[in-house]
Design a protein around this nucleic acid. Structure first.
Length: 283
DNA sequence: CAACCGCCCTGGGTGC
DNA sequence: TGCACCCAGGGCGGTT
């Protein structure tokens, strides 16, 4: 499951491999992969043919190739999406969804996605708060790695909400890039139970949990970046970081690293929240 | 309008 | 060995 650090690794890889190249043709192998591109597959392919990749950018878990003529190829990897740079003629992957060929006849780009939660669309670029972003994600907030991210503003907005802290951390309109795993890890570091009301958090405590989320992502980025292969732009969450460094996520029944109490799991929004019942008391 | 719920989808894992 | 079932996840549309 690609989180922000893995998406950043993919962004970096794509930057190395596709910037400056011109798309020649695009094959859509599964319509669901472009379901957010409403005009359909023919339009999707037609708009991309002949376009030059100018840059590769990221916000939260969204990734996009900035193209000439004010367009962008926007991607969300979902749970299992991968962007692979493959030699022409390499056997098709079982879950190949979209293939991009380039005018230079060099390595092709493939979107591979087992569970089809991910998807692609061609979109126009708009300027929001001084930054160029695809229209479809104009509402997505800056992530904590963004140089223009403002902790002060996010803390204030978070404390104005009337909801549980974990819901707020997962709200991509407030701060982007934090998923279920990092939310649990950040809450453990800040010693907050997931159901703590946001309107009863001090500014200091809200800042603490935001900083914790940022730290976890930075650490994962440092660990995950090293497994990057020069040829394959790969993302499968196998950075090794998750095996060694998760304090609570998926650790039900194991001792808390701080106090030894068994980590507990509770249902949350049709998924799970992991926490230490001693370090993270309910409000 | 803010908050919240259910659904989308697939395959790996588990228990009978 | 096979089958039914559960679970993972972010975003979005609909409802309260």
């Amino acid at each position: 499951m690609p989180e922000l650090p893995e998406v950043e690794v993919v962004r970096f890889g794509l930057e190395q491999h596709v910037v400056g190249r011109v798309v020649s043709s695009v094959e859509v192998h599964h319509p669901r992969a472009i379901r957010r591109h409403l005009p359909g597959a023919a339009d999707f392919s037609g708009r991309l043919a002949g376009r030059k990749v100018v840059a590769v950018r990221r916000r939260g878990k969204y990734l996009w190739a900035e193209l000439d003529e004010g367009l962008a190829l926007l991607t969300h990897l979902g749970m299992s999406g991968q962007m692979l740079v493959q030699p022409v003629g390499a056997p098709d992957e079982k879950h190949l969804r979209v293939r991009f060929r380039f005018a230079d006849d060099g390595a092709e780009l493939r979107f591979v996605d087992q569970r089809t939660f991910g998807g692609l669309l061609v979109d126009e670029l708009v300027t929001v708060d001084g930054t160029s972003v695809p229209l479809a994600i104009a509402h997505i907030a800056r992530d904590p790695m963004d140089p223009a991210f403002s902790p002060r503003e996010v803390i204030a907005a978070l404390r104005r909400k009337h909801t549980e802290i974990k819901r707020a951390l997962l709200d991509q309109n407030l701060v982007s890039g934090i998923g279920n795993i990092y939310a649990d890890e950040a809450l453990w570091r800040a010693r907050l139970h997931w159901s703590r009301p946001t309107d009863r958090l001090s500014a200091a405590k809200a800042g603490e949990v935001l900083t914790a989320a940022t730290d976890v992502m930075r650490e994962a980025l440092g660990a995950g970046g090293t497994s990057f292969d020069a040829l394959y732009v790969n993302v499968n969450g196998q950075s090794g970081y998750f095996d060694r460094s998760l304090a609570v996520y998926g650790q039900e029944g194991l001792p808390c690293q701080r106090c030894g109490t068994a980590i507990r799991r509770e249902p949350f929004m049709n998924r799970s929240s992991f926490f230490c019942p001693r370090c993270q008391r309910r409000g």
